[in-house]
């Protein structure tokens, strides 16, 4: 009887199919390729199809934008408006850091208080809900009246944008602190301050960092919008308004790309910090 059985010991599994370079890098290739394709169409469209006279005014090809970025960032040429791009960049960075710093100083202590006291929490809740739901931009006109045109108005808008995500996340983190762990450290004789230091803060740190990530996004948004309307002399938002009014679409997009890159870089950096700080957590809940 000739049966074609394969003895277990002689059976050799076929080697796993070699993964091609494409298969290994499919997401990168497709993602990068799509972005390149978009740029290519954008670049070539006017050359192939031509643009109406009106549209020409509003159009800048990627090469125009890169040229603008090069001359502004690398050659540090003067803008057609006022100053150099770096002066505006520094002004915006200053506003961003100041406003964000202020919101951290306010949000962290307040968040801890709200998280630890049910009564204070219940009383603040409607206000936080209302302010968090409303775009803070709505307060711009009143902020302008109170703080006057210029620096402090911009700071106030950035602050209002960033403070709520931080506050809400700090609060959630504190509230989420494990009762058992609080009892554990109490049983070892910890006082209220030590309970906060040993349990409440470490426990809420991942929440706070996640809040920080949100707050940074909101703060950048705040810088842009506040500089649109805030009446400061320097700032990237100021440049954008002026560039669009003088039909310098290349400069407008150049600044937009600067914002984009900065946002992505900061977000990635915070994400990095988040991962470092959550080494103690099992991997599956690391991303918040």
């Amino acid at each position: 009887m000739a049966t074609s059985t394969v003895e277990p010991s002689t059976y050799i599994a076929p080697p796993p199919a070699e993964e091609t370079y494409y298969e290994a890098h499919e997401p990168t290739i497709l993602g990068g390729g799509f972005i390149l394709a978009v740029f290519a169409v954008w670049e070539l469209y006017p050359a192939i199809f031509g643009l109406s006279k009106g549209m020409k005014l509003f159009f800048a090809t990627p090469s125009d934008i890169i040229a603008a970025l090069y001359s502004l960032l690398i050659l540090n040429e003067k803008l057609p408006m006022v100053g150099t791009i770096w002066q505006h960049f520094n002004a915006s960075t200053g506003t961003f850091l100041f406003g964000l710093g202020l919101s951290i100083i306010v949000a962290l202590p307040l968040g801890v208080v709200l998280g630890r006291s049910q009564t204070v929490d219940a009383m603040f809740d409607p206000f936080i809900t209302a302010f968090n739901a409303t775009p803070r931009l709505v307060f711009l006109p009143i902020v302008l009246i109170w703080f006057g045109v210029g620096f402090w108005t911009v700071i106030a808008i950035v602050f209002l944008g960033a403070v709520f995500p931080l506050l809400i996340n700090t609060y959630a983190g504190v509230k989420n602190a494990d009762k058992l762990l609080i009892n554990v450290v109490r049983s070892f004789g910890a006082n209220e301050w030590q309970i906060n230091k040993l349990v409440v803060l470490p426990n809420s740190l991942p929440f706070i960092i996640a809040g920080l990530r949100l707050a940074i996004g909101r703060a950048i948004l705040g810088v842009v919008v506040a500089e649109f309307f805030g009446g400061t002399e320097f700032g990237l938002g100021v440049i954008m308004v002026q560039a669009s009014q003088s039909y310098r679409v290349d400069i407008l997009f150049a600044v937009l790309i600067i914002f984009m890159v900065v946002s992505l870089l900061i977000t990635a950096a915070v994400k990095q910090i988040e991962n470092r700080l959550s080494r103690w957590r099992p991997a599956k809940i690391k991303t918040f």
Binding site: P27, G31, G32, F34, I35, V38, F58, G217, I220, L221, V224, V225, F228, G237, M240, V241, A243, S244, Q245, V249, L252, V255, L256, F259, M260, S263, L264, T267
Partner: peptide
């Protein structure tokens, strides 16, 4: 994904003037 992520993360309000 990458393009959308970049657009989502960037302050798109900035195109308002344009």
């Amino acid at each position: 994904d990458p393009l959308m992520t970049a657009l989502y993360a960037s302050p798109l309000v900035a195109v308002a003037p344009l």
